[in-house]
Structure formats: structure tokens, C-alpha cells
Design a protein around this nucleic acid. Structure first.
Lengths: 235, 235
DNA sequence: GAAAACCATCAAGAACGTATCAAGACAAAA
DNA sequence: TTTTGTCTTGATACGTTCTTGATGGTTTTC
């Protein structure tokens, strides 16, 4: 848990290629580099998969059986900014220019070296980070900026201790849902403290003193008696 | 090409190449495509020009007489997100991977086709639209000019040691966010020092003595106890 | 409604994290 | 070589956070 990343997931890559051998190769290579790989064997399926999977990056073969590659790029670009790297056997310059102008981010001619492919993928993904708007949780007068690790109440910045912040972070990322005592205890203090709800209560109390307008009548950090705690999410 | 563009100006392109013939060629080609072209014949001049001209895109030859191309990329990336397209005679995959991982956006092997170059330039520029971060950080009385490696407090220039500057640079490029001890340690001292926060503390202390009005009551370089440090960003 | 289980809060000491000074090691420049 | 500046390390004092037990309030169960 250190670097800020787009989401929290390992990057998803969609591979659109009609040759089974290439799909297999890329699948292996990419997965062993820590990516989650989705496969599609023609243009229509690729478009459908892109909409369904919302990949972080698309590897697209230009020579598809059903649709022209440039057409696929154009259709994708109608609704998505996801980086597209084109893979193609065509050396003709017109093809490259066409693909790039249609909105592709990069163009690699087969056969390509795997290290170069991976470097270009890293580059494209790196560029997307930072453009993504950072999610800020808001409810009541409370604002929690997870990316900046900043909490404020009614515009006033608030100082939280590490444990307090960690509790709040868990609640925010499951806003609206109940987190049981055991869930909170195990994720913050570890399995050994499962039967010691006291330490959790003290921290919840301290947290409320900081983030609630009236700590004695909580409106955000709610107790679910006998179960756990819940953070009220705004409608 | 009437896309939305960064500023109001025609895009400025900086060409860094030691071969006069290539500079002439690119200059002609790019100007006739509507770009404003600036030229530099080696790495140091290129870095200076980038800081002075603030180009929208940089075309960089890897084989420069003074600095290694990858080094130039790294130095640029310390303060600038400007797209960099590398032009090189080197075919070796290692070179490509190195340049891309250092932060280059694209890599073209000479000889390249002019239409393809133009297409890649259009692509890179298209992607950048909307992001034009000011490379001078200001907050409190502090000014940090990342391009010129210049720091001043209340108009007075300040002398920082390399490590101090590096810490400040990291904080500035993540202004407002908390950088954990581990992030700072690993990026400045390397993974081996992850468990030695002492050396970081001493340096933070020294840094505060130089950039804070009242070092005993920090107003810019804030401690997040148990977590790390944060540079206050102005609203 | 009473008993039992659960929950909130306070306060104090222990444990842990942080700031600063100063001395020695080291490296680059004169 | 000496000088100069920088980095590392140790010692020490200071500050914050965590844990724990005591006490009293609240909710659930029967």
C-alpha cells in the first residue's frame, strides 16, 4: 500500500486479435507481468468487450476479419479515451498514419519485441494516471480525499492519527455498508485482536469527536448495535 | 486540424539534434505544417531551451555529443510533462525500452517517414490538450522553479544541498499529498534504507531551517505523524 | 420491566514516533 | 594536501498516539 494508482486493481488489458497464437502469446506475457488480460477475436467482439470490461488499455490488431481496424478505433473513440496500441503486420505508412489519426496512441509493427511492447504499455498507462480525477468522498460536512490523505469537516482541515484514518478509510471505501467489528478489528489490528472490541470502541469514539458536529449524537458514523459500524453515504 | 489546443498559439516544437541536416529538414517540414520550431544542437542547450521556450512537444535525438539522451529525458521529466518523441538511428530494443521507461512518449527509428512523424506528433499533441501545469510552485513565501532548479523564500534565493532539493522536488511534484516515509526513503535513498527514517528526519529538519519562516513551527512542510510529510499547497 | 449484553467516554502510563544538535566520515574542489 | 561542503550516525529531549481499566449509559432480550 504505497503508490497512488488509477484504481486499486491491477491494470486490465484487452487484446483484440484474430490469430489464436498471438492471443495466447500476449495473454501469457501480459499476465506474467501482472496485468489482467481479456481477449476478443474480432472487431465487433472487441467493441463489445471494451464496453463491458472497461479495460485500462487496448491492444488492437489492424487486420481483423470483420471490421477495418481504423473503423474499430473510430468507434471506440466515440465514447472512450482508453489508450489504444495498434499491432500490425502492415508496414505501409498510410496505415500507420490512418490509425494514429483515428485516435490510436501508438503503433507497433509485427514482429515486435516483447520488452518494447511492455515499455510502450507502461508508458501509455503512466500517462493516463494523473488525468484520472481523484475520488473524494463527501457526506454531511465531511470531505475525505483518499488520494491526498486529507480529511476536512465544514472546510476545516482535520488531523487524524494513523489508526483513526485507517478506520475512516475502510468506512469510506465501503460507504453505506455495515462493517462488522470483526472486519474492522482484523483489518486494522490483525486476527489476534478479534475478541477485543474495546480498542475499536475507543478509537471510534475519538474519531467521532473529530468528524461529527455533535459527537454525542452521531449523524455520519453510525452504530449498528451488536453488528458493527456504518458510514452514512449521501444520496 | 482545428482541434482544441493548449494555449492560443500554434504549437511550439523543440528539436534537439546535433546533425545540422536533420535540423534543417525538420525545421522546414514542421514549419510548413503550421508549427513554430525551435532548435538546439546538444543536450544542455536543449534543456535550457525547454525551460525558456516551454515547447508543446520535444523531438529528441538520442545520440547527442554532450549528454546521454536518456539522461536528458530524465532531467526533463523532473519538472515537465511535455511529450517527448525520440528520434534515433539505434535499432536496439534496449535503447527503446530505456528511453520509454525514462519517460519518452514515443520512439521513431531513423530513417522515418515524414507523414508518420507528423501523425505521431498530432497524436501526442492531441493527448496533451488541457494539461499545462505551471512548473513554478508557489506557497507561503516559498518559490520553487523546477525547470531552473531555483528555490527562493520571500524573494531571497536559497541554497539547497542535492538531497534537500530532491526531497523538496518530490514534495512539490506531489504538493498537497502526503508522501509516506517509505516513499521518500525508497525514491531518494533506495530500497535498502526503507527502515531508516532517521536520515530522512535529519534532512527534513535541515530543509525546514532553510525554507520555513519559523522552523520550530512549520507552516509549509508539515509532519503527518506516523505517516510521512506533506507540502502545503496554496488554495 | 429487569437482567444481560453491549456501547461510549475518560484518564493515565506505556510505547512509539519526531526534532535537533553535534561529531565524525566522506568526497569533491582548490 | 588542505579546504569546503555534504551526508551519516548517535545521543538526547520532546511530542504524539495507543492501550488499558474503570465507570456509567444504552440497547436488546426475555
Amino acid at each position: 500500500m504505497d503508490e497512488t494508482r488509477p484504481g486499486d486493481h491491477p491494470p486490465r488489458i484487452l487484446v483484440v486479435d484474430d490469430e489464436a497464437a498471438i492471443r495466447r502469446l500476449l495473454s501469457t506475457v501480459l499476465e506474467s507481468s501482472g496485468f489482467v488480460v481479456h481477449l476478443a477475436e474480432n472487431g465487433s467482439l472487441g467493441l463489445a468487450a471494451a464496453a463491458a470490461v472497461r479495460p485500462d488499455l487496448i491492444l488492437l490488431d489492424l487486420g481483423l476479419p470483420d471490421l477495418d481496424g481504423v473503423e474499430v478505433i473510430r468507434r471506440l473513440r466515440e465514447w472512450s479515451q482508453t489508450p489504444i496500441i495498434v499491432l500490425s503486420v502492415r508496414e505501409r505508412e498510410d496505415d500507420k498514419v490512418g490509425a494514429l489519426d483515428a485516435g490510436a496512441d501508438d503503433y507497433l509493427t509485427k514482429p515486435f519485441g516483447v520488452p518494447e511492447l511492455l515499455a510502450r504499455i507502461r508508458g501509455s498507462l503512466r500517462r493516463v494516471v494523473g488525468q484520472a480525477p481523484e475520488p473524494v468522498f463527501r457526506s454531511g460536512g465531511l470531505e475525505v480525499d483518499l488520494a491526498r490523505r486529507l480529511v476536512s469537516l465544514a472546510g476545516q482541515e482535520i488531523q487524524l492519527t494513523p489508526t483513526e484514518y485507517e478506520i475512516l478509510r475502510l468506512l469510506v471505501t465501503h460507504a453505506g455498508k455495515v462493517l462488522t467489528h470483526r472486519q474492522l478489528l482484523s483489518r486494522i489490528w490483525g486476527a489476534s485482536h478479534l475478541e477485543q472490541p474495546h480498542v475499536l470502541r475507543v478509537n471510534i469514539s475519538n474519531l467521532r469527536r473529530k468528524i461529527e458536529r455533535d459527537p454525542s449524537r452521531p449523524s455520519l458514523l453510525l452504530t449498528e448495535s451488536g453488528v458493527g459500524y456504518r458510514l452514512r453515504a449521501e444520496p
